[in-house]
Write a protein that binds this DNA or RNA. Structure first.
Lengths: 338, 338
DNA sequence: TTGTAAGCGTTATCAT
DNA sequence: ATGATAACGCTTACAA
């Protein structure tokens, strides 16, 4: 039924080597033979076998994209742009959603490697653990193929990082809140990931800059699910924790803060200012729309792929590239125009 | 550097056939040899070559997932659940975002096929064109591998469909709006896709059932982008089009309707009732939260993969499976409790 | 239970 | 410019 290179060679009356040359666009083929071969291919409906090709070449032009959860708005966007950019460059993408369990991550990464991917892209800082041993599996993987980290950094051989300057972004946003008269700024974070820590450091730095003390009770780990985070924030409020502003490490938490404010009839931004993170569609959907830090997922994705292509081309590439964030002001803050 | 099956066989002092048997968990291997082989593998850090395996087996256990745009909330969720379910069954996923251009879709589908995927899953009704010739490329693809359509249907050999009963869902929602006193129900749609048509048919059917005429001006194609769709709806309103309810074929448009209502100080749901579609996080983020038709993307995804696995197992599977939708009531409607 | 050997469909290295 | 032929690393009858 399905034709292979031998069938084509017989039909065209040439050797398989010549067919292979035509297939790969080698210059060393006469126009006449090329025509003949093309005709034979067309007639037989020939499709080259990718496995055989991969076996011979040692590559199927395939990249493994790993993320914890591609249904997350931010990660979904990253995956989308990565896939797009990779395809532009002739690469297919294996998608792999690993969840947040270390063991699963290890296992899935191994699976991806076993499929002979040409490189790995790990999206999101959730892949970096604070305990170095827990990152060893990434270091090991990098012995086989280049590993690109998006929004994380790990200074090891064959590992490259492209990330957003979360530290300065949060520092700047916090500073703006302080300058507009806020002192009790609730900092909501999701986890102690690499970027989670960067954001928190930016928060602290802003207070330091303004010679203010940080009240540690204002730093809170917050659930991600909307219904839960609303309840969580309300819980803090009801326990007597006072705050006049919120910085959230994810837009969904900022939306939760908006909903909380509504439920207690707090005026936004007068009684409560809110800043989100990611500048996702969620920030827009909220009413009032949420001021959000744009960590430029598209630029990050494009850069990541570009770096990888440079690497494939044998060029020297920097181990770490930092892209600065934007602050998109909407109705939950009253910052003065820049 | 990297070990292959021969290295393992030498180190273990057995033949490659035995190594292969161990690799594939064949029963016909003595425990002792199995141990030896495992030890050798471990020592050499052996990883089987997937290409060679694929070449021998004719499959790499890989499924091609194609969607127009994985950054779309709904599609991102579908992709997430599909990938998850496929992995459970030992399959990897090639992700391919094709956009909405027919030529690109054709080209990408060919690309996916050239990678020797075991099946194709096309997510979203945007893959079905109203002009049958434009679907021929899908029919052709189905000659090579089974094609699963998620939220679309095409009655051709080796093509299977899993879809949500959009027709009845919209009919029911429209009916409920009529029963709660609405007569001028604005129907906002994105495109004339398969499911787009089903939804519209449900809308019309509800009016017919209640022996009411449909005002065609109330059926409007609406931009997807939030800022644009708010403007679009406001435009209709300002042109004098009267409506007391909105049914949107996507949550984002329903959110647009909410924002429009806010901008004109229309009370929700008293002066304007709104129903969205997909029951996505966007519906929750809105204020007030939007009543939305839940087309059960997870159930759809799981079923799609299950069907595929049945098919692989050689069992007979129905060409078309329909799953009914849920109506999730929130604050933009005042339907009586069911 | 284990081994031998023939594929699987390419690419690449030689010759010619 | 073209053709033989040896890899590539694995699976799987068929033998033993």
């Amino acid at each position: 039924m399905k034709a292979n290179i031998y069938d084509v060679s017989t039909k065209a009356g040439v050797s398989i080597a010549t067919v292979s040359r035509v297939l790969n666009g080698s210059a060393n083929v006469s126009d006449k033979t090329r025509e003949k071969v093309h005709a034979a291919m067309l007639e037989l409906g020939y499709t080259p076998n990718a496995f055989a090709r991969g076996l011979g070449l040692g590559s199927m032009n395939t990249i493994g994209i790993m993320c914890s959860d591609s249904s997350d708005t931010y990660l979904a966007n990253a995956v989308y742009h990565l896939e797009h950019e990779l395809r532009k460059n002739g690469y297919d993408s294996f998608l792999c959603c690993s969840g947040y369990e270390l063991e699963t991550k290890k296992q899935y990464l191994k699976l991806l490697l076993s499929k002979q991917v040409d490189a790995l892209i790990l999206v999101g800082s959730s892949f970096l653990d604070m305990t170095p041993e827990n990152n060893q599996y990434i270091v090991d993987a990098a012995q086989q193929v280049p590993v690109m980290l998006m929004n994380a950094a790990l200074d090891k051989p064959n590992i490259y990082s492209v990330l957003c300057d979360d530290f300065h972004a949060v520092k700047h946003a916090t500073s703006s809140l302080i300058q507009t008269g806020h002192r009790r700024i609730l900092f909501l974070y999701k986890s102690h990931s690499y970027s989670g820590n960067e954001k928190l450091a930016g928060y602290r730095k802003a207070f330091k800059k303004h010679q203010l003390e940080v009240d540690e009770r204002l730093i809170q780990r917050c659930p991600k699910k909307l219904s839960e985070n609303i309840r969580f924030i309300a819980g803090l409020y009801d326990m007597g924790l006072e705050f006049d502003a919120v910085i959230a490490s994810e837009d969904i938490m900022a939306v939760g803060a908006v909903k909380f404010a509504k439920s207690r009839s707090l005026r936004i931004p007068d009684e409560l200012s809110i800043v989100g993170f990611n500048n996702s569609v969620l920030a827009e959907c909220s009413e009032p729309a949420v001021t959000s830090i744009d960590n430029r997922v598209e630029a990050l994705s494009v850069t990541t792929v570009n770096q990888l292509m440079q690497l494939f081309a044998g060029r020297d590439v920097p181990q770490k590239i930092m892209i600065s964030a934007d602050l998109v002001q909407r109705a939950t803050t009253n910052f003065p125009p820049a």
